[in-house]
Design a protein around this nucleic acid. Structure first.
Length: 286
DNA sequence: ACATCCACCTGCTCGC
DNA sequence: TGCGAGCAGGTGGATG
């Protein structure tokens, strides 16, 4: 999926294009795209139609859009979701799942999602203004959020008995981090993905948080990471941060710090990339 | 409660 | 050229 920087690129594009405007129509072209909206497609369309988008917010990798009238439109891009602003007359393409029409515009907002892991739903707003809805309250603040509490993150890690990368990918501890930025942050911090969380020092946690922050901030400036045309902004343009990756997807290539060939390990049905010299494996496996 | 795993999808690449 | 296996940026719910 798009991770935090890619989702933030989309959020900014949407905020500029959709905030303050009224949805005039919505279409559900694939029911899986709204599977988390339990009342179904007709109810989804009815709750969105005629509503004004007040703002476009993000919590981790979730987008949440308060609507006038007290509901919130929540969306997640999954592994392959795109939000695109295109002419309403443009051909639909094979993976078009949702369309949203807006007042006084010949362009429309499209949710295009090849693998259909992404989706949208409408849910009541939180009691507190500016807070994410209850449906995504389990998502922790991300490391770029001023609300992110590093000391609390450290305490939570020490309480947890798992490996460091597993914890980084757990969105209830720290959000926005996915497979790419976890590996890149760990490389910057010179820590191994299997490091037991209960043995981490405060300084090591600072290093990994700083590493993740740096790599995400740099990726944001580059418009996000794209290896192909799957990850794009609302205008369909790819970011170029893949040129700045140090370990992710670089098996057997030399480490940019020490020249040691980068190693790929199977990890949770995926991969973990490390420099075996800069990030030695801890004695205890996980 | 906590930690781990896998199903949910489509499409591309690789080796035979 | 065809075909099966493996892989891809995520998540929530089931399972132990």
């Amino acid at each position: 999926m798009p991770e935090l920087p890619e989702v933030e690129v989309v959020r900014r594009g949407l905020q500029a294009w959709a905030a303050g405007r009224r949805v005039t129509d919505a279409d559900v072209l694939h029911p899986r795209a709204i599977r988390r909206h339990l009342p179904g497609p007709a109810d989804f369309v009815a709750r969105v139609r005629g509503r004004r988008v007040v703002a476009v917010n993000r919590r981790g990798k979730y987008l949440w859009l308060p609507l006038d009238g007290g509901d919130v439109l929540v969306g997640h891009l999954g592994m392959s979701g795109q939000l695109l602003v295109v002419a309403a007359t443009a051909p639909p393409g094979p993976h078009l799942r949702l369309r949203f029409g807006f007042a006084d515009d010949r362009d429309e907002l499209r949710f295009v999602d090849q693998r259909t892991f992404g989706g949208f739903f409408v849910t009541p707003a939180a009691d507190e203004d500016g807070e994410p809805p209850a449906a995504i309250a389990h998502i922790a603040p991300d490391p770029l959020d001023p609300a992110f509490d590093e000391a609390a993150f450290f305490r939570a890690l020490r309480r947890r008995r798992t490996g460091l990368k597993r914890a980084l990918l757990d969105q209830s501890f720290i959000s926005g981090v996915g497979n790419i930025y976890a590996d890149e942050g760990l490389w910057r911090a010179r820590l191994h993905w299997a490091r037991p969380t209960e043995t981490l020092t405060r300084a090591e946690v600072s290093r990994v948080v700083a590493g993740v922050r740096e790599v995400m901030s740099a990726a944001l400036v580059a418009g996000g990471t794209s290896f192909d045309t799957l990850y794009v902004n609302v205008d369909g343009e790819s970011g170029y941060f893949d040129r700045s990756l140090h370990v992710y997807g670089r098996e057997d290539e030399p480490c940019d710090r020490c020249g040691t060939p980068i190693r790929r390990d199977p990890f949770m049905n995926r991969s973990a990339y490390t420099c075996p010299h800069c990030q030695p494996r801890p004695r205890r496996r996980r």
